[in-house]
């Protein structure tokens, strides 16, 4: 039984296919980097996987059950979802933002039960936010906010994390920091799926690469097996060099592919 699987997913919007015939099986301890050109359907696929968007065709299964058959609170405990550039709309403290990740674990009324307080402290410390605990989330820098949102997503200890461009808008140091945190999660047995634009970053950290082109699955497999100049030419329509391997991979773009 796979942790998360997609069976011939299809999404149509205004007569146009955004996703078509996408199928795959994902297991625990994978860090899957979802890559593809703008408009390839990455965000749509992640929304469908997270159960936020109902596909027009096909089904997503989590823990051996179709998503549609899982109650929303139950689903919220199993997987966490981080949208692109998440932000807080009120100047609530970092501590409160992180605690919101426990929403599906709480009864309908009342504050945070005392038993969950240590978990909150631990989640804040794990994302290096102890110094910002009481700071309004609206005054955080981009990197701090990204860590706060990650802590929010992880505090409920979900088995699956789905993140849409978690490194968007981050400087190199914070992007590296985010990627190594995600890799660390996968190393601890979680399933992580993240849309990533920086291919070098993806190649160095992700265990698996999933490429979308025009709403269809172009490639999916272990990073070392999948990443190749041919794939980049097909998916991104660029000539590129792939240098090195593993943690020292470098993807170097040479120019637009001829004939594109």
């Amino acid at each position: 039984m796979s942790r998360l699987s997609a069976q011939s997913l299809g999404v149509r919007r205004a007569g146009r296919a955004i996703l078509e015939g996408v199928s795959f099986d994902l297991e625990d301890a994978m860090f899957v980097a979802l890559v593809g050109a703008n408009g390839a359907g990455k965000s749509t696929l992640l929304s469908v996987l997270a159960g936020l968007l109902k596909p027009d065709a096909g089904e997503v299964w989590i823990d051996g059950r179709p998503l549609a058959a899982i109650a929303r609170r139950d689903l919220a405990r199993r997987r966490a979802y981080l949208p692109q550039n998440p932000r807080a709309e009120w100047p609530i403290s970092v501590e409160r933002v992180v605690a919101l990740g426990l929403t599906p674990h709480l009864p309908a009324f009342g504050g945070l039960p005392g038993g969950l307080e240590p978990r909150l402290t631990q989640a804040i410390a794990a994302c290096d936010l102890a110094d910002h605990r009481l700071q309004p989330a609206t005054t955080l820098s981009g990197g701090e906010l990204a860590r706060a949102m990650l802590a929010r997503a992880l505090i409920g200890d979900p088995q699956v994390l789905i993140a849409d461009e978690p490194t968007a808008g981050l400087d190199p140091r914070h992007a590296l920091d985010t990627m190594s945190r995600l890799r660390g999660l996968a190393a601890r047995g979680k399933l992580v799926i993240a849309a990533v634009h920086d291919l070098t970053l993806a190649a160095r950290h992700a265990s698996h690469l999933m490429a979308l082109k025009g709403g269809r699955l172009a490639a999916f497999g272990p990073t070392a097996e999948v990443l190749s100049p041919e794939l980049l030419r097909h998916v991104f329509e660029v000539e590129a060099r792939v240098v090195g391997a593993g943690r020292e991979t470098l993807v170097d773009y040479l120019g637009p592919a001829p004939g594109s």
Partner: peptide, 11 residues
């Protein structure tokens, strides 16, 4: 407070 999408994802 985290926006509609995150609220939805939180159940």
């Amino acid at each position: 407070a985290l926006g509609e999408i995150q609220a939805l994802s939180l159940g």
